[in-house]
């Protein structure tokens, strides 16, 4: 299980739209070896088919697809966009923080979601993720949380 490790984090990335933002976060999983390219395309396809329901909170999106779409290891990556982009969500646009979830059918999947929920339930942590200067700052935040 890999949760927001430094190589899975990209701060102040540029994306022109929602699909590019999803692909940026997905590519971190691919580069980290936890998911295949087809998983990234499955996340984009899920967005096209089912809409932006995964924009779970103001400015926060959690794109994901199914475990069988090409995940090697349960994982979460994080992209912070330099310029937030609209995903088409009525309440929570525009999206600045994108967490790509590499779904898995293992117990790790639930453990990861619990870690992410605990982190994002605290507004102070969300603010800290918006303000972090480096991936190392986020690692330090996670060590405290």
């Amino acid at each position: 299980m890999r949760f927001l490790e430094q190589d899975l984090i990209s701060l102040d990335a540029e994306a022109k739209d929602a699909e590019e933002a999803i692909r940026l976060a997905g590519r971190l999983l691919v580069n980290g070896g936890t998911a295949d390219n087809r998983y990234v395309e499955a996340m984009v396809a899920a967005y096209r088919e089912k809409g932006p329901y995964f924009v779970l909170a103001p400015h926060i999106a959690l794109p994901h697809a199914k475990a069988e779409d090409g995940v090697n290891e349960a994982s979460v990556s994080f992209v912070r966009l330099r310029r937030p982009v609209p995903f088409g969500h009525a309440h929570n646009d525009p999206v600045e923080l994108v967490f790509a979830l590499g779904s898995s059918s293992s117990a790790d999947h639930i453990a990861l979601l619990r870690k992410l929920t605990t982190l994002l339930n605290d507004p102070a942590n969300v603010q800290a993720m918006k303000e972090a200067a480096t991936a190392g700052d986020i690692e330090a935040l996670l060590a405290k949380a």
Binding site: K50, Y53, F54, L56, H64, K66, L113, T117
Partner: peptide, 16 residues
């Protein structure tokens, strides 16, 4: 309830 039933609905369930 979420779109795929695997990610966001589980987060919602934890908080509910």
């Amino acid at each position: 309830v979420c779109g795929l039933g695997q990610g966001t609905s589980l987060i919602l369930r934890m908080n509910v």
